[in-house]
């Protein structure tokens, strides 16, 4: 089974400013990958979604990437 990225790196709080980490979980269109692909726990997948949405709002990540 795939290991949860945040648990294995001991990241307890997923920050919206950590664009490099968040980009790992986006597909080329800028959409958040599903939990099957990301391998995250349900809890971390929800935290990731919130962080990505905050990041998009602040213009750090795109809503749609062409």
């Amino acid at each position: 089974m795939k290991q949860d990225y945040f648990s294995s790196n001991n990241i307890k709080y997923i920050d919206y400013k950590d664009v490099d980490i968040l980009k790992k979980f986006l597909n080329p269109n800028g959409r958040i990958t599903g939990k099957r692909r990301s391998g995250l726990t349900a809890k971390n997948q929800r935290k990731l979604a919130t962080a990505v949405k905050h990041s998009r709002f602040m213009g750090l990540l795109p809503f749609i990437a062409k």
């Binding site: 990241i11 920050d15 919206y16 400013k17 905050h54 602040m58």
Partner: peptide, 20 residues
């Protein structure tokens, strides 16, 4: 231009340095 106020934790949360 725009701002965001979020609840967070006291500890440092940014793991990658100056990623922006």
């Amino acid at each position: 231009i725009r701002f965001i106020i979020i609840k967070t934790v006291r500890e440092n949360t940014v793991s990658s340095k100056r990623s922006l």
